[in-house]
Computed example of a mutant assay.
Amino acid sequence: MRGSITVVADDLTGACEIAGVGQRFGLNAIVTLEDQLPGTDAGLRVFDSETRLAQPASATTSLSAIGRSLGASATASIFKKTDSVLRGPLRAELEALASALGLRRVLLIPGNPALRRVVRDGRYLIDGKPLHQTGFATDPHHPARSSDVRDLLGHGGNMPVSTARLGQPLPAEGIVVGDVSSDADLQAWAAAVPPDTLASGSSAFFGAWFAARNTAQATRAPDRLPEGPTLLVSGTTFGPQRQRLCRDVSVDRISLDRLSEIDDWGQRLLKRLEREPRAVACVDGPVSPESRAAANIGTALAEVTSRVFQAGAVRHIVVEGGATAASIARRLGWLTFEGVHEWALGIVSLRPVAAREAFFTVKPGSYPWPDSILPLLFPSSRTASP
């Protein structure tokens, strides 16, 4: 595949996850939150449309504009990154992008077998459990009410939705969701994407899709921790991950009913960073689907992180949760990033173009922390234990 590859993601952690896959294959990656993809000679351009929490009509407008700017001639080098558990106005996004690119068919492979997220007979399973019986049932923005991928994509769209097993003929049009249970399945689907089809799905499928079209071999750079003080900010609303970090005694917590006390919280973090090279910030309290707590968490964490960074207390910011990562990046004026290092699946460090002395590491909120990563970031933290 010649020329650059363009990927459209719906949130910042997803965009960074794709950049990490590119880094693994030796591609120079650029990630942007700008309205236009940057003019660059990077081999991988990743655009965060920030539509995960958008209404379908807004997502349609955004993805239609992106598709028109890319042009139909580039369809073979365009990939649509989706949430691996199908959250967000996904059907509207896929339909809008495909239409703008002049395509009538989308192949969607959302599974990520390495995280035990699979699709079998058109049903989404995590660790063998139906999706709506996992922690995603209480997602504040997109609670899973079914494990049927057709239900998860929603009804009433312009393109029909169907499911398929490997080896079955694909329908001539519509959104086709493929069963996937293993890395071998990912590779087989990647090799089977027809040229007149928009490829879409998880970062794992992107890796297979890229490998099927290139001779570059995947490699991993040695782990290297950026020098200087580090602030880890947990903004995830995914219950198991919030509990894992917030239970640690070294975490500076603030309760949901005290989010206005930013000054005190910021001072506590600054004092901790005067004594220690690492600090963790998170928000205590349950986040219900009916509340605005998730949005308030992102705003509060962006403000306190900005104050700590502007005070010169940190140069490495680690963020758990896509919406929070985007809020912090925009609050700091960091809209374009260069890929630096992939620590593990979904955990990627970038360098803000506007602040090259800083490092920005992100992790999807629903992904578990690998036991090999947290000890590198926080050697004395108890969070490294399951």
Score class of each variant (00 low, 15 high):
13 T>I: 05
15 A>I: 11
19 A>P: 00
23 Q>H: 14
34 E>I: 03
52 R>M: 03
55 Q>T: 15
62 S>A: 15
71 G>N: 02
74 A>N: 13
79 F>A: 00
82 T>V: 02
86 L>H: 14
88 G>L: 05
90 L>K: 11
91 R>C: 13
94 L>F: 01
96 A>W: 06
98 A>W: 05
100 A>T: 11
101 L>E: 11
103 L>M: 13
106 V>T: 08
108 L>A: 04
110 P>V: 13
113 P>V: 08
117 R>Y: 15
122 G>T: 00
125 L>H: 13
127 D>M: 10
149 V>K: 09
151 D>Q: 05
152 L>N: 01
153 L>A: 01
156 G>S: 02
163 T>K: 03
163 T>N: 10
172 A>E: 12
176 V>K: 02
180 V>E: 01
187 Q>P: 00
189 W>G: 02
197 T>G: 11
199 A>Y: 05
209 W>C: 04
211 A>R: 05
217 Q>E: 07
229 P>A: 14
240 P>N: 08
245 L>M: 07
254 I>V: 12
258 R>Y: 09
261 E>K: 14
266 G>T: 07
268 R>Y: 05
273 L>F: 08
274 E>Y: 07
275 R>N: 12
280 V>P: 00
298 G>W: 09
301 L>I: 08
313 A>W: 13
320 E>P: 01
329 A>D: 03
335 L>P: 01
336 T>M: 14
340 V>D: 12
346 G>W: 14
357 E>T: 00
359 F>P: 04
361 T>I: 12
363 K>D: 00
376 L>E: 03
382 R>W: 13
